[in-house]
Design a protein around this nucleic acid. Structure first.
Lengths: 209, 209
DNA sequence: GTCTATATCCAGATAGAC
DNA sequence: GTCTATCTGGATATAGAC
């Protein structure tokens, strides 16, 4: 079915760029074709309709967001290290493709049906399984420490949202932050560097009894 | 220039609804007209082009996000109360219009030029003035407490981003959270209720020395 | 001020030559 | 497999009647 692998890859890469830049509705097939250096008809030839292509790009983008959550595996790790690994791993990963989170969140609100498709995907179910496995582990981890008196009680769901919020928000809100704080590329990255170091302590402190 | 005030208001309200629901590019003037119970030609009659209307809706939405930051005024308030007031005030405010933050952030990334327009607006400059006034106050507040040894040193910019992130993120990521945690409307609001109570303590704890 | 009808444009999609 | 040319539909926008 895939004809020329290279062309296909170039179009797909261009599609990612354009869909992420403009959003699904704002994207134009013409712009994708130009970015890929091919004719617009080729886009259809390789990927069918715009909607097909958009869905594919979204699913893939949403998936790249998930592995970032993977560093959860907990061998004999203490809670503090887990938090640090998660936060720093996440920031490092997202930095490689800083517009993915905003794109995924925005698409998820405008096209909720895509989320359903994602969830039915084989890979889409992974996060739920990961969550089902790691949630209890983290909960036990916290419970033990709470019993020891070295951690205060905390709802794990709320904690997870806190950690994600603190890690992801700067990327999603980047244009606003840039406008508010006068960030350019350099100062934004300096801000992230500082954040990468500060966040783990912030979170760990918050959980002291 | 405004002809019939009521019709104008109905169209504008409809425009808000549709633009926020679909995003600027995804919105259709026909849907706005239908939602307002008027003909599509009237939309042009009152607001000119789609782009004009979109910009107006965005500017207004971005502004409603700002007053939420206003509860910053600090009379003889202690730092802990400031954090609590901010977080709870913000959550309460955004709950009234829970899709505003996602819409504003998404538009800000897809149409950065709108941000510039916003910043040149009279009201657009308010946040910067507010920030210019309150930043030093908060900085002094923290510095005193740090000197006292009752607060650990903390970059105010990072702190502000942390507070915003923790408050705003659940709304922006609502569809993802709903999919991940199986939230419906009711459990999502229960989650917010809990959050409203937990967050201030989380943040305040994080700042203990 | 509000409508119907229509013009204009542009994007997605297909046909068919090479 | 890749292109040019073209069709079709839909969306913004305008003209003009009421």
């Amino acid at each position: 079915m895939p004809k020329d692998r290279d062309t296909e890859a170039r179009i797909l890469a261009a599609a990612r760029t354009v869909f992420i830049r403009r959003g699904t509705s704002g994207a134009r097939l013409q712009e994708i074709a130009a970015e890929a250096g091919v004719n617009q008809a080729l886009v259809h030839y390789y990927f069918g309709s715009k909607d097909d292509l958009a869905e594919r790009v979204f699913i893939e983008a949403a998936q790249t967001l998930v592995p970032a959550f993977a560093p959860i595996p907990v061998p004999g790790m203490v809670f503090e290290d887990l938090i640090t690994a998660f936060v720093q791993g996440y920031i490092d990963a997202v930095r490689q493709a800083p517009f993915i989170p905003g794109y995924v969140l925005s698409e998820a609100t405008h096209h909720p049906e895509r989320l359903e498709t994602l969830m039915r995907t084989a890979i889409g179910t992974v996060p739920r399984e990961v969550a089902a496995r790691t949630f209890p582990i983290v909960e036990r981890m916290i419970a033990e420490r709470v019993a020891q008196g070295t951690l205060r009680p905390m709802n794990v769901q709320q904690l997870l949202v806190n950690v994600m919020a603190l890690s992801v928000f700067p990327f999603v809100a980047r244009p606003m932050l840039a406008a508010a704080f006068g960030f350019d590329d350099e100062s934004f990255h300096a801000f992230l560097d500082e954040r990468r170091e500060d966040l783990p302590r912030f979170i760990i402190n918050a959980l002291r009894p």
